[in-house]
Design a protein around this nucleic acid. Structure first.
Lengths: 243, 243
DNA sequence: GCAATAGTGTCTTTTAGACAGTATGGG
DNA sequence: CCCATACTGTCTAAAAGACACTATTGC
């Protein structure tokens, strides 16, 4: 027999190789009522049946052209829409994380405005937003607590040098709302003036020219994102160590 | 039958699930003769037999406690040692990247001093350092060119706000050498004075007190890393857009 | 007018960029 | 002494932190 790639593939038998468990999970975050929330799903099937865990599933080898598509499919199923921002967090693999054996999950982390899916989420009982401060008290499936912490940490870093955080808000939004998202992630107050300067210098947010009034106080200017907001990076970070 | 996780696992048959191809690959970079180099391996087996590709392999479900262990094993096999710095780059999955079918690789990116493994690498013909500027001209296996570019881009970003780059150098090293690594990654000259200030303020490198003379000119101070170098981040980045 | 919130003026501090100057080695 | 390279002094510019001040709404 000739040693070509064709003949190799002819003889190739995937079942001869060790069996691998590969899933995709997403840490979907949002901002609602001055709190950061993460979307969790109650598992309908074993393993970890009945426990809360991240939305996710298997790659559909006929439908998915890349791993991200599998993440988007599972998020679409639970929220009714695709999130406006998603990025890969990383792969987590170990012999212990799943009782079925050595397993790997590719985790994504995403942002979505709360209102964009609240009707869909409220209509089912197995999907729910949890305050990120609550997750230490929950019993979560597999290593999903670690993955959630990892996702939050990713956005905490991003809050220091980017404005993608705006993708967690419904448009248009006020600078106060956006600043609160940053403050909650960083765990520190940010000067209004400093924050405004950063937004203006970035050029990735635009004023709508309209304002939104609340019960009391002066109405706030409303802003929208531009497509560049996903990739923009400040040269100088917010100083998380400063007073 | 009772609906417990135990009974579920009893009935669980992994072979009933779609077959998944999962590999681990590493982009190992170093600095040698004023150039950035990437380690490539000539593939001994199909698919892509004879082509150059990234060092990598399958997870060993009995030996590896995490994905990173699989990456370290394959690097150890090709260089004789474990790299002093490694981090996960991300998972790459698609139906097209491997002729055997839908496949995923978890890519790592690592740094190592050239001299630490040059004897081992030089002793075999299937492992070789390539100048990173050469990779566009090489025929590479799978999507490894994309992964390499991704790994270089990761360190280009890191060169703007960190000093992990020192892990590509043999210790002790001069500030000139370290600065050259940054310049090659960023693609821009960096002011000597600015770079020295950053190193001093970081506190993650220490002067050895010794110097190294070259053919001509004043001998340069020698520096060593501390363990904090892996995690340190500057608040203010090098400005890649400036002059 | 008062309370409350939004937005601005401006001073200080920090640190990178620029670049000219000095220091220290080999011939 | 000359050359080349290493290192330093110091000015300027950019931008964040701090904080007091003004603006605009509802009552």
């Amino acid at each position: 027999m000739t040693d070509t790639e064709e003949s190799f593939l002819e003889e190739y038998r995937p079942a001869d190789f060790p069996i691998v468990l590969l899933t995709v999970d997403s840490v979907l975050l949002t901002y609602h009522q001055d709190r950061l929330k993460v979307l969790l799903v109650q598992r309908a099937q074993h393993p970890a049946k009945g426990q809360w865990g991240l939305p996710g599933g298997f790659v559909d080898q006929t439908a998915d052209a890349q791993l991200e598509d599998a993440a988007l499919r599972s998020l679409q199923a639970k929220t009714g829409i695709e999130p406006p921002y998603i990025e890969q967090l990383g792969a987590f693999g170990s012999p212990d994380r799943d009782p079925r054996g050595w397993s790997t999950t590719v985790a994504y982390t995403a942002l979505m405005p709360y209102a964009a899916c609240s009707a869909h989420v409220d209509s089912v009982s197995d999907t729910q937003w949890f305050d990120v401060d609550e997750i230490d008290d929950l019993r979560l499936a597999f290593d999903h607590r670690d993955i959630i912490k990892n996702g939050i940490e990713r956005f905490r870093q991003k809050a220091l040098y980017s404005l993608v955080t705006a993708r967690a808000l419904p448009e248009p939004f006020t600078l106060h709302e956006l600043r609160r998202v940053h403050e909650l992630l960083i765990g520190k107050k940010i000067q209004r003036k400093s924050f405004l300067r950063r937004v203006e210098n970035s050029g990735v947010l635009v004023e709508t020219g309209k304002t939104r009034a609340s019960d009391k106080g002066r109405p706030a200017m409303l802003y929208k994102t531009t497509s560049e907001v996903d990739d923009y990076r400040f040269v100088r970070n917010i100083d998380a160590s400063a007073g």
